Structures are given as structure tokens and as C-alpha cells.
Simulated scan of single mutants.
Amino acid sequence: MIDRLHYISQQPANGTHITAIKAALKAGAKWIQLRVKEQPKEDILEYALYVGELCNEYGAKLIVNDHPEIALKAGAYGLHLGLDDMPVNQARAIVGKDMVIGGTANTFEHIRQRVAEEVDYIGLGPYRFTKTKQKLSPILGLDGYAEIIKKVKLAGIQTPIIAIGGIEQHDISAIMQTGLYGVAVSGAITYATDAETMVKQMYQQLNSTYLLEV
């Protein structure tokens, strides 16, 4: 089951990825993507092993960004691959048939590519400008999402699609009304004054929109 709320780790001003992930878990986040860039693989593996233990403690799922070997060694629930990362079929050969694999997309053509690659979910974005990604694809916004999801429905695509990229709590209801499955956030939780309330309200928005659709 793919969660509707994905937390993507980032290093806060006063702390590490571990600091941010601990806070997100304590706040109630259940889907944690460890996204560490420009650090040695040995360090990322250490993070992943420790975060995997934390996720087990809190009943959450660990997703490792970019590194299939690390995801496998850490016993992660899933792996997330960007468009410029290792091809999905190669990663699948490393992690096996049971690990969840998600893939990034920016266009409807990317979504068709990801579906053909048999990913388990798709991260579609960016919604708006975000500092957490250096090579930012063209921004989609609400209109971009609506247009792409219309094509997705016409094509009969059932793969869960997650909005990603600079998303704040006040964006969620409008984003979900375009027909997306869920959202991925980072700073909205990392820098929240009251992260527990923030996560609770996000889940309420996501679930209420889903129930209205059903």
C-alpha cells in the first residue's frame, strides 16, 4: 500500500537528516524517503541502516532515494529513482521483485515511461520551485497537474501518482482535487512550528479528499 503522505528528508539548519527524520516520525509521518545527496555511499548506508531501525520503531516505511544497493542492505521498504538515475529494470534486478520502486516524472510521456517500467508509484512534479532539488524540471502548478491527470485517466492508468515539489499544507486540497493520489512534502514538516499538528491536518486533508472521490 502506497501512503498518501510522503516525507522527503532534508538537512535542517541545526541538525542532520536523522534529526529531521526523527522529528517527522514523532509527528506521525509513516512514509519516509531518505534523500541524501553529495555524500559518500558509506555515510548514506549508515543513515539508511539507522533510519530503518527508527522506521521499524515507529511503524513507518523507509524509502531510499537513488541507491538500490543501499536500499537492499538497509532492508528498506522501497527505492525511489529519478529520471537520471539507474534504469528501473537494472534496479529491480538488484533489489528483487518484492521491494516497492517509485519513479519521478515531469510529463505525461514520463508517466507512460514509468508505467511501462512497472514502477509501483510515480512522483510527479515539481508543483512549484523548491530549493531541495538542484536540477529542477519545468514547474507544473495546478493547471499542469490537471492537464496531465486528465490524460492519465483517459489512458486508464491506475498507478498511484504523488505530487511533489515545494508543497505546503494549504496546497493539498486543491492538488488532490486534480485527481492525484497523494503528496510528498519536505520543508512543510521539517520547518513546521508544530509538526505533529501539521502531519495530522495533512492526513485529514488527504483522506477527506479521497473519501469524497469514492
Rank of each mutant, 00 (worst) to 15 (best):
L72E: 13
Q158P: 04
E46R: 12
T16D: 12
G165N: 04
A76W: 08
E147V: 05
H110D: 15
L154S: 15
V183D: 05
I175F: 03
A116Q: 14
N106W: 05
M176A: 03
V64E: 00
A146L: 10
K131D: 14
E109M: 10
L180C: 06
L72D: 11
R128I: 03
I148E: 04
A27Q: 07
Y181S: 08
A48Y: 03
N207G: 09
A188D: 14
D120I: 14
I63E: 11
L25R: 02
G187E: 06
T178I: 03
R112H: 09
R128N: 09
N89M: 00
I18K: 07
Y145L: 03
T16E: 04
A60D: 04
F108G: 00
V64C: 00
D194C: 10
H67C: 10
A163L: 08
L79N: 01
V100E: 00
G28H: 00
A13E: 14
A20K: 01
G141N: 01
Y58D: 08
L45V: 08
P12C: 05
K131M: 12
P68T: 04
K73Y: 12
G166C: 06
G165I: 09
I161A: 01
G59Q: 07
S173R: 15
E147L: 12
L62H: 11
T19V: 11
L25D: 07
Y127K: 03
L180Q: 03
G28M: 00
L136A: 11
R114F: 04
E118H: 15
E42P: 02
E57D: 11
Q90R: 14
D98T: 14
E57L: 11
R112G: 01
I149C: 07
Y210P: 11
G96S: 00
G15A: 01
K41A: 13
K30W: 09
I164S: 01
G141V: 02
Y77I: 02
F108E: 08
H17C: 08
A20T: 00
A76I: 09
L81P: 06
K150A: 04
R92H: 01
Y50Q: 15
D98Q: 13
L154M: 15
K150W: 07
I21S: 05
M202I: 08
K135Q: 12
A29D: 07
R35Q: 07
Y127N: 11
G75L: 05
L211G: 12
A188L: 08
L83E: 14
L154F: 11
M1A: 14
P138L: 03
L212H: 13
I157L: 10
A74V: 00
I63D: 11
L62K: 06
C55H: 09
L154N: 13
K61N: 12
K151C: 08
